[in-house]
């Protein structure tokens, strides 16, 4: 199932004005209108339309838990943490921008200096009970590390439902299998960005 068919919202060329005659004022006019409407058989048009749909059996139901509608790449559902394609290490550099920008204060993170003197994320969690899925964190992230994914089914026993860093992080085997999807939505690099980047002129 594709959602392209829903994208064309321009229906202006199929609009037309319905020809509504003036309401009859005298008794005879009303009478003829009733007779005309009685014998025009418009009721049968309605009957035929629904019967036709029943015979065609063109069912539009999406049987939800078994079937799902595709969602657009810009959909903002539960966050994902990405890995670098080459090395497989985590993209997040622990800069804390996402924590800073989050307007509902739901990102909690802690960092430390690891043995290679690199900054490393030691704690990272998002409180989904507070998150409003605004996408600011994904937009602000300088490394395209935090993005929104397509997992929208996040029912839980309690409102304060957290996602931890490990849950959001692309599993290393999924990355090796090339299954990590790049984010196309809010704040992401547009495709073929390489071709549009100009060299910084160094010689003035």
């Amino acid at each position: 199932m594709k959602n392209e068919q829903f994208n064309n919202r321009d229906v202006s060329d199929s609009y037309f004005l319905v020809d509504i005659p003036d309401y009859p004022t005298d008794g005879w006019g009303k009478f003829t209108r009733v007779v005309k409407r009685t014998f025009r058989g418009e009721l049968f048009v309605g009957l035929w339309v629904v019967l036709r749909e029943m015979i065609k059996f063109d069912i539009h139901t999406v049987q939800y838990p078994l079937e799902k509608m595709p969602i657009g790449p810009r959909y903002r559902a539960v966050h994902e943490m990405k890995r670098l394609w080459e090395s497989g290490t985590e993209r997040c550099i622990g800069c804390g921008l996402c924590e800073k920008i989050c307007i509902s204060n739901c990102i909690q993170m802690d960092t430390k200096i690891d043995e290679n003197s690199r900054k490393e994320v030691s704690e990272y969690s998002i409180n989904l009970g507070r998150c409003i899925f605004c996408g600011y964190c994904a937009e602000v992230c300088p490394e395209l590390a935090i993005t929104h994914g397509g997992r929208y089914e996040n029912g839980s026993e309690q409102r304060e439902h957290f996602v931890m860093y490990e849950d959001m992080l692309t599993p290393i085997d999924a990355l090796k299998a090339g299954k990590q999807l790049e984010f196309e939505g809010f704040g992401a690099i547009t495709p073929h960005e390489d071709e549009r980047v100009k060299k910084t002129p160094l010689s003035y």
């Binding site: 629904v50 019967l51 749909e53 029943m54 059996f57 063109d58 069912i59 539009h60 139901t61 049987q63």
Partner: peptide, 12 residues
């Protein structure tokens, strides 16, 4: 019948 006429599936 109503479901089929309205392109639904009805109880399933």
């Amino acid at each position: 019948v109503l479901a089929f006429m309205q392109r639904r599936l009805g109880p399933m």
